[in-house]
Amino acid sequence: MNAEQASGRERPGLVTRALVRGLAWDVGAPLAAYYVLHLAGATDWAALLAATGAAACRLLWTAFKGHSLNPFAMLMVIVFGLGLGLSFLTGDPRFLLLKDSAITGGLGVSFLVLAALGHPLTLDAAKTWSPERAGEMDREFHRNPGVRRWHLKISAVWGAGLIAEASTRAVLVYLLPIDVMVGVSAALAVTVFAALIAWTAWDLKRRQAARSS
Rank of each mutant, 00 (worst) to 15 (best):
residue 1 M to D: 09
residue 2 N to T: 06
residue 5 Q to A: 12
residue 7 S to W: 11
residue 8 G to H: 05
residue 9 R to L: 05
residue 10 E to F: 14
residue 12 P to V: 01
residue 13 G to C: 13
residue 13 G to S: 09
residue 13 G to N: 06
residue 14 L to M: 11
residue 20 V to N: 05
residue 24 A to P: 02
residue 25 W to T: 03
residue 25 W to L: 09
residue 26 D to C: 09
residue 26 D to I: 13
residue 26 D to N: 13
residue 28 G to M: 00
residue 31 L to A: 07
residue 31 L to C: 09
residue 33 A to W: 05
residue 33 A to V: 02
residue 41 G to T: 12
residue 43 T to E: 11
residue 43 T to W: 08
residue 44 D to F: 15
residue 44 D to N: 15
residue 46 A to L: 15
residue 48 L to R: 01
residue 54 A to C: 08
residue 55 A to Y: 02
residue 57 C to Q: 10
residue 59 L to Y: 02
residue 59 L to A: 14
residue 61 W to Q: 09
residue 61 W to D: 02
residue 61 W to C: 05
residue 62 T to I: 03
residue 63 A to I: 12
residue 63 A to M: 15
residue 63 A to Y: 12
residue 66 G to T: 10
residue 66 G to L: 09
residue 67 H to W: 15
residue 67 H to P: 13
residue 68 S to Y: 08
residue 70 N to Y: 00
residue 70 N to L: 02
residue 72 F to Y: 11
residue 74 M to T: 15
residue 75 L to G: 10
residue 75 L to E: 01
residue 75 L to T: 11
residue 77 V to D: 00
residue 80 F to I: 12
residue 80 F to T: 06
residue 81 G to D: 08
residue 83 G to A: 03
residue 86 L to H: 10
residue 87 S to T: 05
residue 88 F to S: 14
residue 90 T to Q: 11
residue 92 D to L: 09
residue 95 F to Q: 04
residue 97 L to A: 01
residue 99 K to M: 14
residue 101 S to H: 05
residue 102 A to L: 15
residue 103 I to R: 03
residue 104 T to Y: 10
residue 104 T to I: 13
residue 106 G to L: 02
residue 107 L to N: 04
residue 109 V to P: 00
residue 109 V to T: 07
residue 112 L to S: 03
residue 113 V to M: 10
residue 117 L to A: 15
residue 118 G to C: 05
residue 118 G to I: 06
residue 119 H to Q: 15
residue 125 A to H: 00
residue 125 A to K: 01
residue 129 W to G: 07
residue 130 S to L: 06
residue 131 P to V: 00
residue 136 E to S: 06
residue 138 D to S: 00
residue 143 R to Q: 00
residue 144 N to T: 01
residue 145 P to Q: 09
residue 145 P to V: 04
residue 146 G to M: 06
residue 146 G to V: 10
residue 154 I to Q: 05
residue 155 S to K: 06
residue 156 A to D: 13
residue 156 A to P: 08
residue 157 V to K: 10
residue 157 V to G: 03
residue 158 W to S: 05
residue 159 G to K: 01
residue 159 G to V: 03
residue 159 G to I: 05
residue 160 A to P: 10
residue 161 G to V: 00
residue 164 A to Q: 04
residue 165 E to K: 14
residue 165 E to W: 11
residue 167 S to C: 12
residue 167 S to A: 12
residue 170 A to V: 08
residue 171 V to R: 09
residue 171 V to N: 08
residue 174 Y to H: 15
residue 174 Y to E: 12
residue 180 V to D: 07
residue 181 M to E: 13
residue 182 V to F: 04
residue 183 G to Y: 02
residue 183 G to D: 02
residue 185 S to V: 03
residue 186 A to L: 01
residue 187 A to L: 07
residue 187 A to V: 07
residue 188 L to C: 04
residue 188 L to K: 05
residue 190 V to I: 06
residue 192 V to P: 00
residue 192 V to F: 11
residue 193 F to T: 09
residue 194 A to K: 04
residue 195 A to D: 04
residue 196 L to A: 04
residue 197 I to Q: 06
residue 197 I to S: 03
residue 198 A to P: 07
residue 201 A to Q: 07
residue 202 W to V: 13
residue 203 D to W: 12
residue 204 L to V: 08
residue 205 K to L: 15
residue 206 R to V: 13
residue 206 R to I: 10
residue 208 Q to A: 05
residue 210 A to R: 15
residue 211 R to I: 12
residue 211 R to T: 09
residue 211 R to H: 12
residue 212 S to Y: 11
